[in-house]
Design a binder for these strands. Structure first.
Lengths: 130, 130
DNA sequence: CCATCATATGAACGATTGCTCATATGTTCA
DNA sequence: TGAACATATGAGCAATCGTTCATATGATGG
């Protein structure tokens, strides 16, 4: 889940990168932009968060769980995928705190951990429908 | 492997993916879930849309453009990345209709194509801050 | 305890991603 | 027209992803 970095280490300070003659952004604006962009840690968390929604299997799982809590094999059946594939994805979803689970005998039930998720999904849907 | 009778017969149309004996989801619910989950085409579009936000470089670009329109080399400078890397990502962002561009002489200015984007970003931020 | 069922997990593999490097395209100006 | 600059793009490569397969863990009931 790491981003690959080039040899950015070489060019320490801003401005050394890869200059062009055109300066359309003056220092003042540049400062402001650098201030507005969230810090690296947050950006990585944010990207990691959205990455969860960037896979059809995971999105389908989330939509299914939107209806009702469900056990792994129910999900596997409904989504027509192997138990293993579903389980792996659920683990990921749990790590990202998007789902929670509870055990009941042999069965483990998964459910959404947050009402937010529905909002995010429909926000995305709204955007692609136009 | 042999199936025993029971409600196994009821889930024929789904296919024989990988059944378990536990039936926690009855047919009625299953039908509803299958109805609620958007169709494949839409899900792929949705996942593709979120995938855009699933990379720190792209998110940083979007945050930068949130402040002001900008040319490729300004972005490269500010984000400390090569012109090529930025250009590749901008192309992707444009394909996904998240940014638009206008040419002015040699320079190409990019800007967000949609106010929605800010909403999505802050929705995500809101979620990871807790 | 042992067999069985539900779930979890590690390794492996092909597909995809995001970068770099080299080079092509487009625009301006002398 | 050609040099200089801004941007775009194709190929190649290492990293990452999502699945499968085999197997481990955990719970239940004989």
């Amino acid at each position: 889940m790491m981003e690959q970095k080039g040899d950015a280490g070489l060019r320490e300070e801003i401005g050394e990168a890869e200059q062009c003659e055109c300066i359309h952004v003056h220092d003042e604006l540049k400062e402001r932009i650098l201030r507005e962009i969230p810090e690296d840690g947050k950006l990585e968390d944010l990207a990691a968060f959205f990455k969860v929604f960037g896979d059809t299997t995971r999105v389908r799982i989330l939509y299914a769980l939107l209806c009702s809590e469900m056990c792994v094999c129910d999900l596997a059946q409904i989504l027509q995928m192997t138990q293993s594939a579903i389980s792996h994805q659920l683990r990921f979803l749990k790590q990202m705190a998007l789902v929670k689970n509870r055990r009941e005998g042999k069965t483990v039930f998964y459910s959404l951990s947050d009402g937010h998720i529905s909002t995010i999904l429909s926000q995305g849907m709204e955007h692609i429908e136009e």
